[in-house]
Design a protein around this nucleic acid. Sequence first.
DNA 1: AACGATCTCAACCGCGTGGCT
DNA 2: TAGCCACGCGGTTGAGATCGT
Length: 323
Amino acid sequence: MGKGRAPCCDKNQVKRGPWSPAEDLRLINFIQNYGHDNWRALPKQAGLLRCGKSCRLRWINYLRPDVKRGNFTQDEEETIIKLHKTWGNKWSKIASRLPGRTDNEIKNVWNTHLKKRLLNTATTKDCNEPKESLTTSSSSSSSLRLSNETQDLETEQPNKTNYVTSDLFCPEQQTTSSLSSNPSNSNSSSQVDKVWPQNHLDFGEEVEKKKENKQIRSELELELELESIEIPLEWDKDFWNILDLEDIDLFGSNEVDQYYCQASNFGEEKRQEFENDKWFKYLENELGLEADGCSGADDVTAAERLLMDDVDPCMAYFADGLT
DNA sequence: AACGATCTCAACCGCGTGGCT
DNA sequence: TAGCCACGCGGTTGAGATCGT
């Protein structure tokens, strides 16, 4: 055995660089069907010329259905700033508090936006009177308050009033949904994406329970509490909007509701079928592969055709793209 | 319109860690 | 207990996008 660590894979044997749509589809399809018990073995099993690490990264940072896209909200940015103050560059830990955001994304946002902004803020404030400071460790009253908040975080007791979503992520309270939405936990659920129908039901139930208390609470209180309900990411409206699903009838709320009814009747197999179909539809839409309204008598989607073993993915991709 | 500077972010790299034998 | 292996994390890179002149 030679010195140093053996490379995780043969660099000459694997493809590197940006992922093609066909590769994405192949990876998604494989994980949907077989999960990701073993990242190292996955590329071979899935027929991908990629390193296992690369597959894992691609899945976690980009392809997971619950990954949130788009700009960070004010709330999210503030949360990052606060958590960074507490934990420093523990990106995965910070990501665990931000549903749908990955450590990589948070790291990028911090390095490109927040760090600079805070530096500017600090500079500006140095020129003005000393006020509350997020960036410095000065002993102002506000930073004292902040340190109290962060203490809560350190003891895994998130401060309910300061983090819109933080109370959703207490380990004790985590549902399968939030677990699967958490990149750092992604390894613990090898069969992914099978949880959201149940979460939808839980969510509805919880809303109803909250509403029952309406008589004895002010509307404001109720609203605040509703905000704290754990909304399954897969059901997050923003998420679906981000995916530009308006054009896909399958994702209309009526159909989804219908599906829930059906799912309880037809069981796990049907549900999985629906999940796969849902993803193919989404990917076709996202990747511009969607066929025209009548996709053929055999119900094979463009994306599925890509995955057929006897079809060259790249050729199929371009062929579909041109139609 | 063209070009260089700057920014963004997906992907890579190497190391630390924990589980298994 | 030591060695191996796989995973996950954090730092870094570089291609493409955007901005400014």
